[in-house]
């Protein structure tokens, strides 16, 4: 299996090595806003932007960065792009910026970005690194959007702010509060892992002619 082909990278980041349910990275910063689909989308798009550009920059500069200060310079690069996102949000989407609060800044400490920069961008070319950043972000995004979908639908009866459920529906307040995010994420991991384990055990059955 060629580990570095774009298709393989995509498959790994979206499913087999998914940052959230396999690597369990980077859940802090975004779980907090998953009670609302709009905020989740904006946060994850911001993360994809930062991940892609960070990987690009680190990959382009990898031969210039002295080893001693590698971690701190990577942090600097990540912080640079996060601040850009923050500045842009504040100027052009002030409502969203206010409702996201400090969580935009917390993208800096999101282990996924730092992890990918270390593990991938340091040893691969720029275009592939950008692709890795984008696909990692996408792998992150789809899981969180499913959680946000459930939380907003059951907690508010709306999707993206548009009322979807009939007015007779009593919202499940627990979905708006913290515990639901933990439960949903745990359940998601359960389902995903069970599927992967089943695939593994059926892969190990002797297949005729293979």
């Amino acid at each position: 299996m060629n580990d570095d082909s774009p298709v393989q990278i995509l498959k790994n980041n979206i499913w087999y090595s998914n940052p959230i349910f396999i690597q369990i990275l980077g859940i802090c910063s975004t779980l907090a806003v998953t009670n609302n689909l709009t905020n989740t989308v904006i946060m994850t798009v911001g993360l994809i932007f930062v991940a892609a550009f960070t990987n690009l920059t680190v990959s382009l500069l990898k031969n210039l960065i002295p080893r001693k200060v590698r971690m701190i310079l990577q942090t600097l690069i990540i912080a640079f792009y996060v601040i850009i996102v923050d500045i842009l949000l504040r100027a052009y989407l002030p409502e969203v910026s206010k409702s996201l609060g400090p969580y935009v800044g917390l993208i800096i400490t999101n282990c996924i970005i730092m992890g990918r920069a270390e593990a991938f961008a340091q040893s691969h070319g720029p275009l592939l690194s950008v692709w890795d950043g984008v696909t990692s972000g996408l792998g992150y995004m789809w899981v969180l959007m499913i959680i946000a979908f459930v939380r907003e639908l059951m907690g508010f009866g709306t999707l993206f702010g548009i009322t979807v459920l009939p007015s007779g529906f009593t919202p499940w307040t627990i979905m708006v509060m913290a515990p639901s995010a933990f439960f949903l994420l745990g359940t998601f991991i359960w389902v995903a892992k069970t599927i992967i384990l089943k695939q593994k055990s059926s892969d190990m059955q002797p297949k005729g002619g293979k």
Binding site: F21, I24, P179, S180, A181, F182, F183, L185, G186, T187, I189, W190, V191, A192, K193, T194, L197
Partner: peptide, 13 residues
């Protein structure tokens, strides 16, 4: 499927 992070998260919940 729940062993490890799955059950940890539910516990945290």
């Amino acid at each position: 499927g729940l062993k490890g992070p799955g059950i940890t998260l539910i516990t945290i919940g």
